[in-house]
């Protein structure tokens, strides 16, 4: 395994073990015969912000969904905050508690109010007293700037507001790592900024973030590293400046020329 991982462009010089938030080592995944993830190795250190981009079908979403085990990988190792994801369901639930996820389509619980959406998991999974959970929920609602919507149902909010609620819902579990799966792709254009602003704020607070997005402005502003994927492989990974100004791989150059008009 070791020579493979060092050869992979996704890897930075080995940091201290305790600084590693997520470690993917030679991960492979198949959907039936289709080889979606091919030898993915990526080490994410704490407080690092990684933006993952690439054409659709390149395996970006699948990769971050493997990190909280919404998808199973078939080969290789995934270690999240020191816990290796194996078939142990208890461990998977433990990892999921510490890894927040924000989805493209928000996936708020429509039968619960905004406040209940935020407190449900802290109360039932973290066993927090209701009062504490509500205080924390209101704190995060203020941070995403919609405390006045607490009593409403998700269906009454705009897309941008719903996505901010979804971010707050993930934060209420006090996660160590946040995964974003195309958080702005389903939004009307005028609502993208409010969600990105929330994410920028989160980055400034030192959250470890893995973000699948096509928002290149956000990537330039926030990312420590940009990972470009194509056909299930990591093709190139670099700092934003080097990535945008001096892409190395032909595929990266083509992709950038297509998205940066």
């Amino acid at each position: 395994m070791a020579p493979q991982t060092t050869a992979n462009p996704g890897l930075k010089p080995t940091p201290l073990k305790t600084d590693v938030a997520v470690d993917l080592i030679g991960v492979h995944k198949w959907y039936g015969d289709f080889h979606v993830l091919r030898d993915i190795s990526l080490r994410v250190t704490k407080s690092e912000r990684i933006v993952i981009c690439g054409p659709s079908g390149s395996g970006k979403s699948t990769m971050i969904r493997c990190i909280n085990c919404l998808e199973e990988h078939q080969q290789g190792r995934i270690i999240v905050d020191g816990t290796e994801l194996a078939n142990d369901l208890k461990k998977i639930d433990e990892v999921r508690r510490d890894v927040g996820m924000v989805f493209q389509h928000f996936n708020l619980f429509p039968h619960l109010t905004v406040l209940e959406n935020l407190t449900l998991a802290p109360i039932w999974v973290r066993k927090q007293p209701r009062r504490d959970a509500e205080d924390i929920a209101m704190h995060y609602l203020r941070r995403v700037k919609i405390p006045e919507q607490a009593a409403k149902f998700p269906g009454q909010l705009s897309g941008g507001q719903q996505q901010r609620v979804a971010i707050a819902r993930a934060l209420c579990m006090n996660p160590k790592i946040m995964l974003f799966d195309e958080p702005t792709s389903a939004l009307d254009p005028e609502m993208v900024k409010e969600v990105l602003d929330t994410m920028v704020q989160l980055a400034e607070d030192g959250m470890t973030m893995l973000v699948v997005t096509h928002e290149m402005g956000f990537a330039r502003q926030v990312a420590n590293r940009i990972v470009f994927m194509d056909e299930g492989q990591i093709v190139e990974a670099n700092t934003p400046q080097a990535f945008f100004d001096n892409p190395q791989h032909e595929r990266t150059k083509l992709f950038l020329s297509q998205i940066l008009h």
Binding site: N68, L70, L89, D93, E94, R96, R97, V99, G100, M101, F103, H105, N107, L108, F109, P110, H111, L120, A121, W124, V125, R169, A170, M173
Partner: peptide, 27 residues
């Protein structure tokens, strides 16, 4: 019930029974 509801429930750490009781079955 859309698949996203299951995923959102699992992503915040709900096990099968709590997910069913609190999120899926009520809807």
């Amino acid at each position: 019930i859309p698949k996203g509801q299951y995923e959102a429930a699992m992503a915040v750490g709900f096990g099968y029974w709590k997910m069913m009781r609190l999120i899926i079955l009520p809807q």
